[in-house]
Design a protein around this nucleic acid. Sequence first.
DNA 1: TCAAAAGTGTTGGCATTACACCCATGT
DNA 2: ACATGGGTGTAATGCCAACACTTTTGA
Lengths: 229, 229
Amino acid sequence: MIKTVSNRKRVKLSPKFVTNEIAINCIVFGYVGGNLKVLMVKEENDGENKWRLPATFMKKNETANDATQRLLQESGIKESIFLSQLNAHCDPNRMITIGHYALIDTEKYSINKSTMSWIKISYIQQLFYNQNAIFEEALMRLKRMVQDTPIAIKLLPRKFALPELMNLYEAILGVEIDKPNLRKKILGSKYVLQLNEKSYSFTYRSTKLYTLNLAVFNSYDSKIADYDF
Amino acid sequence: MIKTVSNRKRVKLSPKFVTNEIAINCIVFGYVGGNLKVLMVKEENDGENKWRLPATFMKKNETANDATQRLLQESGIKESIFLSQLNAHCDPNRMITIGHYALIDTEKYSINKSTMSWIKISYIQQLFYNQNAIFEEALMRLKRMVQDTPIAIKLLPRKFALPELMNLYEAILGVEIDKPNLRKKILGSKYVLQLNEKSYSFTYRSTKLYTLNLAVFNSYDSKIADYDF
DNA sequence: TCAAAAGTGTTGGCATTACACCCATGT
DNA sequence: ACATGGGTGTAATGCCAACACTTTTGA
């Protein structure tokens, strides 16, 4: 067996090693008004209103995760469905930004800052600095997760219709979904329970309502944890 | 369309926001002597030789990727098959460590530092600080990649036998592989070309040798790029 | 009454799994 | 000669994509 170091002397940094300020930003995904949206911050710039990703800096005694939780709290989001770190992006001589992405149940929590709002992902164009790269990374990770786990259901309201879920999948993946196959997959999975109610909220048509089968869903929690990386 | 900020005033940091020193470490995987191994650094500690992951600190003008490349260079590794960032691990009040993992063609490059050596992954026990978490993360990412892409072939010597590839898969995934099914998969994929040679190097038995079909393999480069996240 | 959208059923193909088996060879 | 490990073939399975189809319902 290989013996490894259990405690090590404190490293002394020579001047050539820089220390940096650490920025945190978070791509917050939510399903709002039938659309996949991202939480953005309004910023006054030369009298014009423009948008950027929510961001903060790491404080003393905080981990990156702590700082991100704080960032969410400050926006009125007490809890997220899922939160994970993305790559750290380095802008030499400027700063290091650790990206994150979060999934939010927008039925449970509403943002409390007038400077923020939900922006449809198709509207997001050119972000400044490295924020586009981080956004793309978040979207790619969301796509991967949504294809391999049932987590998308948690983005929907507690009572939802299958066409609504299909609409969400299409928004996230950016492709058309085959309706019969999606129904088979979802209903066959036992993730959802059918309710004795019908809805007119999503479309003008009435549709059967379903709700998450928590017991079955929770048995997949360990699989969802894999998507931390 | 939403307008976004294209340039922003420099942020002034208040004293409550800390700046940190950024450590880099890298889990370097290689296939050596029929085993999956990781590059470790010998460290004198109270007269005993112990092992740790290769590490450095980010210098001025460097990105995390730059620093990792430098770390590899300093060990004699000019090029890697694959290199990707892992999560940043935060130890409050101490430092931030950005993990990386690299795959190395050990036939092409040999380490030039007497303080380093290749350690079988099954021998790696308790690492100090957060290095275990980073190691587990690297291994999980490697497993995922190896299951979904043919990259494992690139870890092998230029000429290799199928039982050797099978052995590598078993070492990485930690499970038994069904021999007939693996053969079908690999040979059916056209990733490999059969050579008119036989080998006695891997086992005492003679086996047919194969080599990577670069043209076919390269058509999957874009898929491999997905594993940056 | 008609179009659009909800909802159902059938099919074929592809990939994965399990496993039985033959063959070559080093001891 | 025989055990070990290299190498081959086949059948069962399950998943997924494609698509034809019926039913409902709001306008």
